[in-house]
């Protein structure tokens, strides 16, 4: 039987090859067949998740909620010291210097990344802004969102912190951060579906020692992850409860 692996579409483009290396490493280590399918759209991936297409997913926290509570997935590991944080940025020459400076009607460049969009909108609340009084434009990537800020087509942009930090220096030098979230306990995680449950002990052992051999370490580096940390059921439920409080 061949299992199916997918990755939350918000991974950095530089790490695409890393996920293919990871898939090859996993197949060799667990001695099972795994097919990797990548998406550039959250909606398209979510449709296939609901169609029960996957057995192993590196999921964002928002989708982890659906995967665990509705589809019986179990979180087995998360990347060490890599919480998901959101950055709200403006054009470096913008008159806005704090979130409270933002005004009704301002134009927001966002993506279909559900966690980042949710956190971004929450951080606008202190300026009395919400989806009813700002102009939200969804872009296909953070780079496109950044370009909209730079050419004046948007007033503020929402970015996954890691994606913001990986924008080119030239782009970042022309932008200014208004606020960075500091939540710490919300992060991506690797989840295993019911069909693959029997492989969880071997998978968890392999992941948690992955950084100890040269090959595993190289694969981790190519994915931009230093090592994996274990995740138990209660840690997962806690994160999902927290996400639930953020969704109105």
């Amino acid at each position: 039987m061949t299992f199916n692996l997918s990755v939350s579409p918000d991974f950095a483009p530089d790490h695409i090859s890393g996920w293919y290396f990871f898939n090859t490493w996993l197949q060799r280590t667990l001695d099972i067949g795994i097919h990797l399918e990548l998406y550039d759209s959250f909606d398209a991936q979510r449709k296939d998740i609901r169609a029960d297409k996957f057995d192993l997913i590196y999921a964002n926290p928002y989708d982890a909620s659906m995967l665990v509570r509705e589809l019986g997935f179990q979180a087995v590991a998360r990347p060490a010291s890599q919480p998901d944080e959101t950055v709200i940025a403006v054009n470096a020459e913008s008159d806005f210097h704090s979130v409270e400076d933002l005004v009704e009607g301002c134009r927001v460049a966002t993506t279909d990344d559900p966690d980042v969009h949710t956190m971004g909108m929450i951080m606008l609340e202190s300026a009395d802004l919400d989806s009813s009084n700002v102009e939200i434009k969804q872009h296909s990537s953070y780079v496109v969102g950044a370009k909209n800020l730079l050419n004046g087509d948007a007033d503020v942009g929402f970015f996954l912190k890691d994606a913001y930090d990986e924008l080119s220096e030239l782009i970042r030098s022309r932008m200014r951060v208004l606020v960075r979230s500091e939540i710490s306990v919300v992060h991506h995680s690797l989840l295993v579906g019911p069909r693959m449950a029997e492989h969880i002990p071997a998978l968890q052992t392999a992941l948690l020692t992955m950084q100890d051999d040269a090959k595993g370490k190289g694969v981790l580096e190519s994915m931009g992850i230093s090592s994996w940390e274990p995740m138990d059921v209660e840690q997962t439920e806690f994160m999902i409860d927290l996400i639930d409080t953020l969704i109105d």
Binding site: E100, E125, S126, E237, D241, L242, T245
Partner: peptide, 21 residues
């Protein structure tokens, strides 16, 4: 929000954020 595990209430999670003036 209530924290429900296996159908049982085990506690509550409270998350606070910045309000507008």
């Amino acid at each position: 929000i209530p924290n429900v595990r296996n159908g049982q209430l085990v506690g509550y999670t409270s998350v606070r954020r910045k309000p507008s003036r």
